[in-house]
Protein backbone atom coordinates (compact mmCIF):
# COMPACT_ATOMS: atom_id res chain seq x y z
CA UNK A 1 0.00 0.00 0.00
CA UNK A 2 1.22 3.46 -0.80
CA UNK A 3 1.74 6.02 1.93
CA UNK A 4 -1.55 7.84 1.74
CA UNK A 5 -3.57 4.64 1.71
CA UNK A 6 -1.74 3.32 4.73
CA UNK A 7 -2.23 6.64 6.53
CA UNK A 8 -5.98 6.52 5.86
CA UNK A 9 -6.22 2.88 6.85
CA UNK A 10 -4.40 3.47 10.12
CA UNK A 11 -6.43 6.55 10.93
CA UNK A 12 -9.75 4.82 10.39
CA UNK A 13 -8.69 1.80 12.37
CA UNK A 14 -7.44 3.99 15.22
CA UNK A 15 -10.64 5.99 15.25
CA UNK A 16 -12.89 2.96 15.38
CA UNK A 17 -10.81 1.38 18.14
CA UNK A 18 -10.72 4.57 20.20
CA UNK A 19 -14.31 5.73 19.80
CA UNK A 20 -16.90 3.82 21.75
CA UNK A 21 -15.51 0.37 21.01
CA UNK A 22 -17.67 -0.09 17.92
CA UNK A 23 -16.34 -3.63 17.48
CA UNK A 24 -17.52 -4.55 20.95
CA UNK A 25 -21.00 -3.11 20.42
CA UNK A 26 -21.36 -5.04 17.18
CA UNK A 27 -20.37 -8.32 18.78
CA UNK A 28 -22.67 -7.66 21.74
CA UNK A 29 -25.55 -7.02 19.35
CA UNK A 30 -24.68 -10.22 17.49
CA UNK A 31 -24.75 -12.08 20.81
CA UNK A 32 -28.08 -10.48 21.72
CA UNK A 33 -29.67 -11.53 18.40
CA UNK A 34 -28.44 -15.10 18.75
CA UNK A 35 -29.68 -15.17 22.33
CA UNK A 36 -33.22 -14.08 21.57
CA UNK A 37 -33.76 -16.62 18.77
CA UNK A 38 -34.12 -19.65 21.12
CA UNK A 39 -36.66 -17.65 23.13
CA UNK A 40 -38.62 -17.24 19.94
CA UNK A 41 -38.38 -20.70 18.43
CA UNK A 42 -37.92 -22.76 21.57
CA UNK A 43 -34.84 -24.50 22.97
CA UNK A 44 -35.05 -27.52 20.65
CA UNK A 45 -31.39 -28.26 19.97
CA UNK A 46 -32.06 -30.17 16.76
CA UNK A 47 -34.06 -27.30 15.32
CA UNK A 48 -31.41 -24.80 16.42
CA UNK A 49 -28.68 -26.88 14.80
CA UNK A 50 -30.68 -26.93 11.59
CA UNK A 51 -31.34 -23.20 11.44
CA UNK A 52 -28.09 -22.22 13.20
CA UNK A 53 -26.19 -21.06 10.09
CA UNK A 54 -29.15 -18.91 9.09
CA UNK A 55 -29.37 -17.35 12.55
CA UNK A 56 -25.68 -16.54 12.54
CA UNK A 57 -25.90 -15.02 9.08
CA UNK A 58 -28.92 -12.89 9.91
CA UNK A 59 -27.29 -11.80 13.14
CA UNK A 60 -24.15 -10.81 11.25
CA UNK A 61 -26.18 -8.94 8.64
CA UNK A 62 -28.04 -6.93 11.28
CA UNK A 63 -24.89 -6.25 13.28
CA UNK A 64 -23.12 -5.03 10.15
CA UNK A 65 -25.99 -2.72 9.23
CA UNK A 66 -25.99 -1.32 12.74
CA UNK A 67 -22.54 0.23 12.51
CA UNK A 68 -22.66 1.41 8.93
CA UNK A 69 -24.45 4.74 9.28
CA UNK A 70 -21.36 6.36 10.79
CA UNK A 71 -19.07 5.16 8.00
CA UNK A 72 -19.12 8.52 6.20
CA UNK A 73 -21.34 10.60 8.45
CA UNK A 74 -18.70 11.23 11.12
CA UNK A 75 -16.33 12.50 8.45
CA UNK A 76 -18.98 14.64 6.85
CA UNK A 77 -20.01 16.35 10.06
CA UNK A 78 -16.59 17.74 10.86
CA UNK A 79 -15.65 18.69 7.31
CA UNK A 80 -13.17 15.85 6.82
CA UNK A 81 -15.10 14.45 3.88
CA UNK A 82 -14.80 17.74 1.97
CA UNK A 83 -11.06 17.68 2.39
CA UNK A 84 -10.88 14.02 1.40
CA UNK A 85 -12.56 14.82 -1.88
CA UNK A 86 -10.00 17.56 -2.51
CA UNK A 87 -7.06 15.42 -1.48
CA UNK A 88 -6.26 14.38 -5.03
CA UNK A 89 -6.72 10.70 -4.27
CA UNK A 90 -9.21 8.54 -6.18
CA UNK A 91 -12.36 8.64 -4.10
CA UNK A 92 -13.28 5.06 -5.05
CA UNK A 93 -10.03 3.79 -3.55
CA UNK A 94 -10.49 5.98 -0.50
CA UNK A 95 -13.88 4.36 0.03
CA UNK A 96 -12.51 0.87 -0.53
CA UNK A 97 -9.86 1.48 2.11
CA UNK A 98 -12.36 2.97 4.54
CA UNK A 99 -14.55 -0.09 4.03
CA UNK A 100 -11.61 -2.39 4.64
CA UNK A 101 -10.75 -0.60 7.87
CA UNK A 102 -14.39 -0.62 8.89
CA UNK A 103 -14.68 -4.32 8.17
CA UNK A 104 -11.58 -5.14 10.18
CA UNK A 105 -12.90 -3.09 13.08
CA UNK A 106 -16.49 -4.35 13.03
CA UNK A 107 -16.88 -7.28 10.62
CA UNK A 108 -13.89 -9.36 11.58
CA UNK A 109 -14.86 -9.44 15.28
CA UNK A 110 -18.22 -10.89 14.20
CA UNK A 111 -16.44 -13.62 12.24
CA UNK A 112 -14.23 -14.35 15.24
CA UNK A 113 -17.24 -14.47 17.56
CA UNK A 114 -19.21 -16.75 15.24
CA UNK A 115 -17.68 -20.09 16.33
CA UNK A 116 -18.33 -19.17 19.94
CA UNK A 117 -21.95 -18.31 19.28
CA UNK A 118 -22.25 -21.47 17.17
CA UNK A 119 -21.84 -23.47 20.37
CA UNK A 120 -25.07 -21.96 21.70
CA UNK A 121 -26.81 -23.14 18.56
CA UNK A 122 -25.58 -26.72 18.83
CA UNK A 123 -23.57 -26.62 15.61
CA UNK A 124 -21.10 -29.44 15.07
CA UNK A 125 -17.46 -28.57 14.30
CA UNK A 126 -17.86 -28.95 10.54
CA UNK A 127 -20.78 -26.57 10.26
CA UNK A 128 -19.09 -24.26 12.75
CA UNK A 129 -16.11 -24.05 10.44
CA UNK A 130 -18.31 -23.71 7.37
CA UNK A 131 -20.34 -20.83 8.83
CA UNK A 132 -17.22 -19.04 9.99
CA UNK A 133 -15.60 -19.43 6.60
CA UNK A 134 -18.67 -18.17 4.74
CA UNK A 135 -18.95 -15.21 7.13
CA UNK A 136 -15.29 -14.44 6.56
CA UNK A 137 -15.85 -14.35 2.81
CA UNK A 138 -19.34 -12.83 2.86
CA UNK A 139 -19.30 -10.07 5.49
CA UNK A 140 -16.96 -7.84 3.43
CA UNK A 141 -19.65 -7.86 0.75
CA UNK A 142 -22.18 -6.69 3.35
CA UNK A 143 -19.90 -3.81 4.36
CA UNK A 144 -19.26 -2.84 0.73
CA UNK A 145 -22.94 -2.94 -0.23
CA UNK A 146 -23.75 -1.12 2.97
CA UNK A 147 -21.31 1.61 1.98
CA UNK A 148 -23.68 2.49 -0.86
CA UNK A 149 -26.50 2.96 1.63
CA UNK A 150 -24.21 4.87 3.98
CA UNK A 151 -23.19 7.31 1.28
CA UNK A 152 -26.76 7.79 0.07
CA UNK A 153 -27.98 8.63 3.56
CA UNK A 154 -24.88 10.57 4.60
CA UNK A 155 -26.66 13.92 4.67
CA UNK A 156 -29.67 12.66 6.60
CA UNK A 157 -29.69 13.24 10.30
CA UNK A 158 -31.31 9.95 11.11
CA UNK A 159 -30.40 7.82 8.15
CA UNK A 160 -29.72 4.58 10.01
CA UNK A 161 -33.14 3.05 9.54
CA UNK A 162 -33.45 4.14 5.93
CA UNK A 163 -29.99 2.74 5.29
CA UNK A 164 -31.14 -0.67 6.49
CA UNK A 165 -34.23 -0.55 4.28
CA UNK A 166 -32.18 0.43 1.24
CA UNK A 167 -29.41 -2.08 1.81
CA UNK A 168 -31.30 -5.22 2.82
CA UNK A 169 -32.79 -5.96 -0.64
CA UNK A 170 -29.33 -5.58 -2.16
CA UNK A 171 -27.84 -7.88 0.46
CA UNK A 172 -30.29 -10.73 -0.12
CA UNK A 173 -28.07 -12.59 -2.63
CA UNK A 174 -25.17 -12.55 -0.18
CA UNK A 175 -27.41 -13.93 2.53
CA UNK A 176 -28.81 -16.62 0.23
CA UNK A 177 -25.43 -17.90 -0.89
CA UNK A 178 -23.83 -17.50 2.53
CA UNK A 179 -26.45 -19.67 4.15
CA UNK A 180 -26.62 -22.05 1.16
CA UNK A 181 -22.93 -22.76 1.22
CA UNK A 182 -22.93 -23.21 4.98
CA UNK A 183 -25.84 -25.63 4.61
CA UNK A 184 -24.16 -27.33 1.69
CA UNK A 185 -21.20 -28.14 3.89
CA UNK A 186 -23.52 -29.86 6.39
CA UNK A 187 -26.25 -31.59 4.42
CA UNK A 188 -24.53 -31.68 1.05
CA UNK A 189 -27.48 -31.54 -1.33
CA UNK A 190 -25.09 -29.62 -3.58
CA UNK A 191 -21.32 -29.50 -3.45
CA UNK A 192 -20.04 -26.88 -1.01
CA UNK A 193 -17.87 -25.18 -3.59
CA UNK A 194 -20.67 -24.15 -5.96
CA UNK A 195 -22.50 -21.69 -3.68
CA UNK A 196 -19.25 -20.79 -1.95
CA UNK A 197 -17.59 -19.66 -5.15
CA UNK A 198 -20.69 -17.67 -6.07
CA UNK A 199 -20.44 -16.03 -2.65
CA UNK A 200 -16.81 -15.14 -3.41
CA UNK A 201 -17.94 -13.71 -6.74
CA UNK A 202 -20.60 -11.61 -5.02
CA UNK A 203 -17.97 -10.17 -2.69
CA UNK A 204 -15.75 -9.31 -5.64
CA UNK A 205 -18.67 -7.69 -7.48
CA UNK A 206 -19.50 -5.70 -4.35
CA UNK A 207 -15.86 -4.59 -4.12
CA UNK A 208 -16.26 -2.99 -7.55
CA UNK A 209 -19.83 -1.73 -7.50
CA UNK A 210 -19.84 -0.57 -3.86
CA UNK A 211 -16.97 1.95 -4.05
CA UNK A 212 -17.99 3.26 -7.49
CA UNK A 213 -21.61 3.86 -6.47
CA UNK A 214 -20.64 5.29 -3.08
CA UNK A 215 -18.12 7.64 -4.63
CA UNK A 216 -20.75 8.93 -7.03
CA UNK A 217 -23.23 9.39 -4.19
CA UNK A 218 -20.69 11.20 -2.00
CA UNK A 219 -19.70 13.53 -4.83
CA UNK A 220 -23.32 14.46 -5.35
CA UNK A 221 -24.00 14.90 -1.67
CA UNK A 222 -21.21 17.47 -1.26
CA UNK A 223 -22.61 20.94 -0.95
Amino acid sequence: MTGWAMALFQRDLRLSVRIGGSALVGVLFFLAVVTVIPFGVGPDLNLLARIGPAILWIGALLATLLGLDRLFQADREDGTLDLMMMAGRPLELVILIKCLAHWIATGLPLVVAAPLLAIFLNLDPVSMGAVTLTLLVGTPALTLIGAIGASLTVSLRRGGLLLAVLVIPLAIPVLIFGVSSADAAIHDPVPFLTPFLILCALTLIAAVVGPIASAAALRFSAD
Binding site: I148, L152, L166, L170, P173, L202, I205, V209, A213, A217
Partner: peptide, 13 residues
Protein backbone atom coordinates in the same frame (compact mmCIF):
# COMPACT_ATOMS: atom_id res chain seq x y z
CA UNK B 1 -27.57 5.95 -8.16
CA UNK B 2 -29.68 3.62 -6.05
CA UNK B 3 -31.92 2.82 -9.02
CA UNK B 4 -28.94 1.86 -11.14
CA UNK B 5 -27.34 -0.22 -8.39
CA UNK B 6 -30.73 -1.88 -8.03
CA UNK B 7 -30.94 -2.50 -11.77
CA UNK B 8 -27.52 -4.13 -11.60
CA UNK B 9 -28.63 -6.16 -8.63
CA UNK B 10 -32.04 -7.29 -9.85
CA UNK B 11 -30.70 -10.06 -12.12
CA UNK B 12 -28.45 -11.21 -9.28
CA UNK B 13 -31.37 -11.17 -6.87
Amino acid sequence: ILTLVGALNLPII
